[in-house]
C-alpha cells in the first residue's frame, strides 16, 4: 500500500509539532477539544500508520492509569469546591448546592483527565510511528545535535538489555550472600553505577579506537530531510488545535 503514513514524516518536525501542540493544549480546558485531539491521534494511528496493536496497548495502559488517577484527583479535590466528604455531610441541608459542586468537580475531573489523554494521544502517536535511530539522525541534521551526543544516546539505549540482565545478576549476587536488596536499594544502585561508568568508559574507548571523533563533518549513511508535506501536516494539526480553541471556547 502506498498510502500516506505518519512513519514517513520527518521525526524532528513531528517532535516539534507535538511539543507545540502540547503547549497549545496547556492554555485551554476545553474537554471536547482535548477528547477530539485524543480521538484524532487514535484514528491517525489506526488508518495512517503501521503501529502494532500490541505495542499500542502496552504503552496506552500506563497512560490510561495516569489519566484515571488525575480524574479522581479532580473529582475529589477540585479547587473552589467542597470535597466529597464535606458535601456528603451537608447532603441533607442543601442538595442543590451539593449537586452543583459535584457537577463542577466532575467537569474539572474531565478537563484534567482528557487533557492528559490529549498529551498521551500525541505522545503515543509519536512513539509508535518513529524509529529511534531515525529520530536521533534527524536531530543531528535538523536540530544541530552534535554527533557525539547522537551516537552517545544510541550506544546507551542499545545497552539497555545488557543493563537489565546485569541488574538481575547484581540482585541475585546480593541474595546469594544473604543480603536483602531491592531495585531501589542504594547497594544495588551503587553496584549498577560502577558497572555503568565502566561501560561508558569502555564504550568511549571502543568508539574512539574505531575512528569516531564526534566531528560534525563526518559522512552519513542516510540524511533526513524536511519536505513540504512535513510542514503541511504540522500546520494542519496546529491550525486545527488553534481553530478548536477559538471556536469551542
Amino acid at each position: 500500500m502506498s498510502r500516506i503514513k505518519v512513519e514517513k514524516l520527518n521525526p524532528s518536525v513531528k517532535a516539534i509539532t507535538v511539543l507545540l501542540a502540547a503547549i497549545l493544549i496547556s492554555f485551554q480546558y476545553i474537554t471536547v477539544l482535548n477528547t477530539a485531539i485524543f480521538v484524532m491521534s487514535l484514528l491517525v494511528l489506526l488508518f495512517f500508520s503501521n503501529a502494532k496493536p500490541k505495542r499500542f496497548i502496552a504503552i496506552f495502559i500506563p497512560a490510561l492509569i495516569a489519566a484515571f488517577g488525575i480524574f479522581l484527583l479532580g473529582l475529589y479535590y477540585a479547587r473552589g469546591n467542597t470535597t466529597v466528604t464535606e458535601s456528603l455531610g451537608s447532603l441533607s441541608t442543601d442538595p442543590y448546592a451539593v449537586r452543583a459542586a459535584m457537577m463542577n468537580n466532575l467537569s474539572t475531573a474531565l478537563q484534567l483527565s482528557t487533557r492528559l489523554l490529549a498529551y498521551a494521544g500525541l505522545g503515543i502517536m509519536f512513539a509508535l510511528t518513529t524509529d529511534g535511530e531515525e529520530f536521533i539522525s534527524s536531530l543531528v541534521h535538523q536540530c544541530g545535535l552534535s554527533p557525539k551526543f547522537a551516537y552517545g544516546i544510541i550506544a546507551a539505549v542499545n545497552l539497555m538489555p545488557k543493563m537489565l540482565d546485569e541488574l538481575k545478576t547484581v540482585k541475585l549476587a546480593f541474595k546469594a550472600r544473604g543480603i536483602k536488596a531491592g531495585t531501589l536499594s542504594p547497594k544495588v544502585l551503587f553496584t549498577m553505577l560502577v558497572n555503568s561508568i565502566r561501560w561508558s568508559e569502555s564504550l568511549a574507548l571502543a568508539m574512539e579506537s574505531k575512528g569516531f571523533t564526534g566531528d560534525r563533518n563526518r559522512t552519513y549513511y542516510s540524511v533526513t530531510k524536511v519536505r513540504w508535506y512535513d510542514i503541511a501536516c504540522s500546520a494542519v494539526l496546529l491550525g486545527g488545535i488553534v481553530a478548536g480553541m477559538i471556536l469551542l471556547r
Binding site: 546507551a156 553505577l193 555503568s196 568511549a204
Partner: peptide
C-alpha cells in the same frame, strides 16, 4: 564535551530510567 562524559551521562540516564520504571 568529551565522548566519555556524554556516554557516562547517557548510560546513567538509561540506568535511572530502568530503576525508575522498576
Amino acid at each position: 564535551w568529551k565522548l566519555k562524559d556524554v556516554l557516562m551521562i547517557a548510560v546513567c540516564a538509561v540506568l535511572f530510567g530502568v530503576i525508575f520504571l522498576g
